[in-house]
Nucleic acid binder design. Structure first.
Length: 461
RNA sequence: GGUGAGGUGGCAGAACGGUUAUGCGUGAGCCUGCAGAGCUUAUUCAAGAGGGUUCGACUCCCUUCCUCACCUCCA
């Protein structure tokens, strides 16, 4: 598989062997929003695809659980910062379990890596990449000649536009904190006095400690390219002398009417609220509808389109499951190969979804024409399930004991006898269990529909 | 101002130096007891603008305009 690398600007083939992935997760000071969800779903699909292709994958996703934003938020609520972080981590897992995101192999937290953070900081001081002043320890950007390569920035030009904050004692405005001395708030002891780590250092410590050097993929949202990932490279590579990661993979932003979501515009869509409204499958299809590297514009139309698509996939899957008789003609492998080729080409989920929709269309065609044979259906079903598994899509199942087949058979007798009112009553009754009946010529397929509240008022996205 | 991404049909959104992308929406028709699903067909020269290379460009090169993001915290 090939993946685009932000650092080199090239699309690089993945090396053979186990794949180590580090994904920059979230700072847990609030609930996650659809932008976080998009990035996390993309990496979830990436690791599922690789695993499905027979690769051994290790996915590490961090929680930054100590940070000024957490402290500020806690102060505003009169809560303890570490407990607040704990609460949002719990809510994170609730939300993403619901979104069908497979749990990462580990979720390291900054607060659990203080020893590593301190030892890397000490090593950077020793090697001349960092220095100690009154307010803490800073990384010296000029000590790392490659600084700016990831984000395409020139340190000389950065100096001209920089804002000098008052009371700053760092040597250059470009330098950034590795350790912040502090008197209050959650504090950890260090050789430089009590305090807290700076923002970027925890990811250097956790990636090195969980995955080592030169791991395959380091990912996150585009907005992390600068300064977060740029600084991580400076720290990690200044410390080890080697390469931190081989491919830097960045996901595009989710925008609303073309604008990035922001607190000040009040247009943030929380993952939780959207899950309540659209359910996991529609939300995932939405997140995967465009290429991961480009922005997705959040809109009622796009959500409605994802919903329509999901309804078709549901019907397709149940149709395949209940196929019977007939001579089949179709090529399950053809769609599967197209799907795989799209995914292998820099994770082109849009193309992959197209392959799925064309497959669904073809299945509908065969089913309507009575040409869907059991053998063919089974072959297509197994491919569809594989694709849905990679995309993290799951159809709803009817309540146990619904006795659907029996009711469908009874309704068939009613229809044959021309007792349409009774037949329609059965259809209505089953609808109460979210089961919809599709009458093809000669036979009836039942589909268990996922309950999606947003379907009734799609405009209020 | 700097850096990066991008401008494709009513909307969403890919690929590709030459053949209808695809989906959604909309119109008409078919199928159906009804509904759904499905089918047929239409939605005219789709490519921000202007040059260039080429037998041929949406696809390569140049110029220009525009949008968004990052440059302060951000997935």
């Amino acid at each position: 598989m090939n993946i685009h690398d932000t650092l080199s600007g090239d699309t690089l083939p993945l090396r053979d062997g186990p794949v180590r992935i580090y994904l920059c997760g979230v700072t847990v000071y609030d609930d996650t929003h659809i932008g976080h969800a998009r990035t996390i779903v993309v990496f979830d699909v990436l690791r599922r695809f690789l695993a499905e292709s027979g690769r051994s994958v290790t996915l590490i996703q961090n929680f930054t659980d100590i940070d000024d934003k957490i402290i500020d938020r806690a102060a505003a609520e009169g809560a303890d910062p570490l407990q607040l972080a704990e609460r949002y981590i719990a809510r994170y897992h609730e939300d993403f379990d619901r979104l069908h995101v497979k749990r990462a192999d580990a979720y390291p937290r900054a607060t659990a890596y203080m020893g590593h953070i301190i030892s890397i900081t000490a090593s950077l001081i020793e090697s001349g990449h960092a220095y100690v002043v009154d307010s803490g320890v800073y990384y010296s950007v000029e000590s790392f000649p490659r600084y700016g390569r990831l984000s395409g920035k020139d340190t000389g030009e950065m100096m001209t536009g920089v804002r000098i904050e008052p009371q700053e004692d760092k040597l250059s405005p470009l330098d950034f904190a590795l350790w912040k001395r502090a008197q209050k708030g959650p504090l950890w002891d260090s050789p430089w006095g009590p305090g807290r780590p700076g923002w970027h250092i925890e990811c250097s410590a956790m990636s090195l400690s969980c995955l080592g050097e030169d791991f395959e993929i380091h990912g996150g949202g585009r907005d992390l390219i600068f300064p977060h990932h740029e600084n991580e490279i400076a720290q990690s590579e200044g410390h080890t002398g080697g390469r931190q990661a081989r491919v830097w993979m960045h996901t595009g932003m989710v925008t609303i009417s073309g604008q990035k979501m922001s607190k000040s515009l009040g247009n943030i869509k929380s993952t939780r609220a959207l899950l309540d409204r659209w359910g996991p499958n529609v939300l995932r299809l939405f997140c995967l509808s465009g290429h991961y590297s480009k922005p997705i514009d959040y809109s009622a139309e796009l959500l409605a389109e994802s919903l329509t698509l999901w309804r078709r996939l549901e019907a397709c899957r149940y149709t395949l499951e209940q196929a019977a008789g007939g001579e089949g003609g179709g090529a399950a492998r053809e769609w599967a190969e197209r799907f795989d080729a799209a995914m292998a080409a820099d994770l082109n989920t849009h193309e992959a979804i197209v392959a799925m929709t064309e497959m669904a269309k073809s299945v509908g065609e065969m089913a309507a024409g009575g040409r869907l044979g059991t053998g063919e259906a089974a072959a297509i079903l197994s491919e569809l399930d594989r694709m849905m598994g990679i995309m993290g899509l799951r159809v709803a199942r009817p309540p146990p004991g619904a006795a659907i087949d029996g009711r469908v058979a009874e309704r068939r007798q009613m229809r044959l006898a021309g007792r349409y009112a009774e037949a329609d009553a059965v259809r209505e009754e089953l609808r109460g269990d979210s089961v919809e009946l599709l009458d093809y010529s000669g036979r009836t397929i039942w589909v268990c529909r996922e309950q999606i509240p947003g379907e009734d008022a799609p405009d209020q996205a």
